[in-house]
Design a protein around this nucleic acid. Structure first.
Length: 121
DNA sequence: CTTTTGACGCGTA
DNA sequence: CTACGCGCCAAAA
């Protein structure tokens, strides 16, 4: 059976509390000094598409307590438009030890978080 | 109830 | 490297 069936079922069963809520929980699991791509979050949360992740972040409140700054796009770059806190995000990441190259990209091979099940390093 | 919108990802040219 | 389009689905107005 395809995962979709299970996911679809949860969605139909009313199990879907709110895609955001689930996404928020996932993002909150991201350890310091690590980053995850939207697609990664979507994969971990399950049943959500990358769009949903981005949309959830956009809808997040500044004080939601979610380390949204650890979420970057598949290219390892910050997505936020200037003014939305992009510079702030980069500052926080660098503060956590994340390194950006001249193009403002992160080495996902080194800083990507493998998920809640995978141990650091 | 309907319509708009949106922090993405990926294939293809 | 750039540019374009499609898919994906929920929340907000």
């Amino acid at each position: 059976m395809r995962r979709k069936d299970a996911e679809l079922r949860s969605r139909k069963s009313g199990r879907a509390q709110g895609a955001h809520e689930r996404i928020r929980s996932v993002v909150r699991l991201i350890p310091e000094g690590r980053v995850v791509t939207y697609g990664q979050v979507a994969e971990i949360a399950g049943g959500v598409t990358p769009r949903m992740v981005g949309y959830a972040m956009a809808s997040l409140r500044p004080s939601s307590g979610v380390p949204w700054h650890r979420v970057v796009n598949a290219s390892g770059e910050i997505s936020l438009p200037s003014g939305a806190g992009a510079e702030e995000q980069r500052a926080m990441l660098e503060s956590e030890g994340i390194v950006f190259d001249e193009k403002g990209r992160i080495d996902l091979e080194k800083f990507r978080w493998s998920g809640p099940g995978a141990s650091s390093s």
